[in-house]
């Protein structure tokens, strides 16, 4: 068995003295692990950092085996993010989210989103939007997608500003007004492509992470006995801090 694919490093774990087991999110083969011989060498260590994009050649005798990777760095962005707190928290958080995907199941949409997010971390205004939309996409990919296109009560497609915490459906301003204290706020940027709308406010970002965080915790993390990573909290705090400095 042999294939070649592009992949993003999610993490590595030492295996013996000279090798590591690398966990990649590949474009066509999904989240896939493989042994990298010589992975602890000085040449390979910079390549094997979370967030880097690599060209991976995977080989094994049988498909179900762990197999070995031969990796070549394509975009080595890890060194560039180390000095920026929001970027380093963001990489760690996105990698831990992507690790929730089932193994060897292609998720090309998630791969493209992750690649886009990692490539845009320099811009603190875009970084938070990317991460919030990535969390939303992860919910969809894991089977718990929120319906943010129409109002659950009236069927309206305009002026959707709330989300029902029970159903995960959008609710229009008029229909949701009587229950506004019980509904979650839906920031407009979550329904737009990154960079198409105006910059979200700090409150918009807090609302977005409250929204995605609640559903991620309820449907994905708690059933697995997990909770939100410290990196997520660190990312949100760091982005809000940096945005204030930039402003």
């Amino acid at each position: 068995m042999e294939w070649t694919d592009d992949g993003i490093i999610l993490g590595v774990r030492r295996h013996g003295e000279g090798s590591v087991i690398a966990e990649l999110l590949t474009r066509e083969h999904g989240r896939h692990l493989g042994l990298v011989r010589g992975g602890t060498s000085a040449r390979m260590r910079p390549v094997l950092q979370p967030g880097n994009t690599v060209r991976a050649v995977w080989r094994a005798r049988l498909d179900e085996q762990l197999g070995t990777y031969a990796l070549e760095g394509l975009t080595l962005r890890a060194a560039g993010v180390l000095t920026s707190s929001h970027a380093v928290y963001g990489v760690t958080h996105l990698a831990s989210l992507a690790r929730l995907l089932p193994e060897r199941d292609p998720h090309e949409n998630i791969y493209e989103m992750l690649e886009g997010a990692l490539g845009d971390f320099d811009d603190v205004r875009h970084a938070a939007v990317h991460v919030a939309q990535f969390e939303l996409a992860m919910l969809t990919e894991l089977g718990f997608g929120l319906d943010l296109s129409t109002c659950a009560a009236t069927g309206a497609t305009e002026d959707l500003v709330y989300v029902s915490p029970k159903s995960g459906n959008a609710v229009s301003r008029s229909a949701g007004e009587p229950w506004r204290d019980k509904l979650l706020r839906l920031p407009a940027f979550l329904r737009e492509e990154v960079g198409t709308g105006g910059p979200p406010s700090d409150d918009d970002l807090r609302d977005a992470f409250m929204l995605t965080g609640m559903f991620l915790l309820r449907h994905v993390l708690e059933p697995r006995g997990q909770r939100h990573s410290d990196a997520r909290d660190g990312f949100i705090a760091s982005v809000l801090r940096r945005r204030r400095v930039v402003a």
Binding site: R45, Q49, P50, G51, A78, A79, V81, L82, T83, S85, V88, Y89, V91, T92, D230, A231, G234, A237, S238
Partner: peptide, 15 residues
């Protein structure tokens, strides 16, 4: 360490 894990720890401590 100048790794993503090492620097995540560094930023966490700084906070």
């Amino acid at each position: 360490n100048a790794t993503v894990d090492g620097q995540t720890t560094a930023h966490y401590i700084t906070d």
